[in-house]
């Protein structure tokens, strides 16, 4: 191979990368024998390195990796989130009840306070649906009270969804409605005959709890607790039969 032929071959040679490529072996050997060709190879390599470093010096957007990771971080599905949140809420309610039971027997006031506290913060919805029957089925499928009787006026309020809770060892169904002004309206249904201080009858008993107005009543073995922001006038329209 002549130096001229070697030079043609070495025009695309990258000393640090193509050294083991047999296509260049003979030409590289020729460059070792020809100092001028060797100098030319060095010059070509300097040019290669210059272009390489210019291309590699292009600044990379600082937030690119974060963007990629954020948009593709494995996420909980909406359903999984709801289930997890519901489980956490149930555990929290169980823990709260257990701690209270150790101190003194549970009362309806305790239950009311716990439930009011629950909806005063962000809470998980087990099923988001405007369909009362779907909600009832969901609650039944989750061993939560489902044979409740809603006040007739309440049925006209838009349903947002429902959740299954537990207070002590007792399941509690939560139905979430939206009032005309957009605020929430909650109805808890449970069966807890051993609670002390239960409402005496179907007549609602009002109480201010945790900034909410609540109305509690008993009907057919079920204990109902309705809650809303504001005063008793906020609940009254929904309590009519």
């Amino acid at each position: 191979m002549t130096s001229r032929e070697a030079r043609e071959i070495l025009k695309t040679y990258r000393p640090g990368i193509d050294f083991h490529d047999p296509a260049f072996h003979e030409a590289v050997a020729q460059a070792r024998r020809d100092p001028d060709l060797a100098a030319w190879v060095r010059n070509q390599d300097a040019l290669y390195q210059g272009i390489r470093s210019q291309l590699k010096d292009v600044p990379v957007p600082e937030d690119l990796a974060a963007k990629i990771l954020t948009s593709h971080r494995p996420r909980w599905s909406g359903r999984e989130m709801l289930q997890l949140a519901a489980a956490v809420a149930i555990l929290a309610a169980v823990a709260a009840f257990w701690l209270q039971e150790r101190r003194h027997p549970a009362t309806f006031a305790d239950y009311r306070t716990s439930m009011a506290a629950l909806v005063s913060k962000k809470y998980p919805m087990g099923l988001e649906t405007p369909d009362l029957e779907r909600a009832r089925k969901f609650l039944a499928n989750n061993q939560s009270p489902s044979d409740y009787v809603l006040p007739a006026a309440l049925k006209s309020a838009p349903l947002l969804g429902c959740a299954t809770l537990s207070w002590g060892a007792n399941p509690v169904s939560l139905l979430c409605f939206r009032q005309k002004d957009g605020s929430g309206l909650w109805l808890f249904v449970t069966e807890h005959p051993s609670l002390r201080g239960l409402p005496a009858s179907v007549e609602p008993e009002f109480s201010q709890t945790n900034g909410l107005i609540t109305a509690g009543w008993r009907d057919g073995g079920k204990i109902y607790l309705m809650a809303s922001l504001g005063g008793p006038d906020r609940l009254a329209p929904y309590l009519r039969e």
């Binding site: 030319w40 210059g50 272009i51 210019q54 291309l55």
Partner: peptide
């Protein structure tokens, strides 16, 4: 073929 020290004359914008 590049002449004397062509790498020194390169800039990123020109290469791109």
């Amino acid at each position: 073929d590049a002449s004397v020290d062509p790498a020194a004359k390169l800039d990123s914008e020109a290469v791109l």
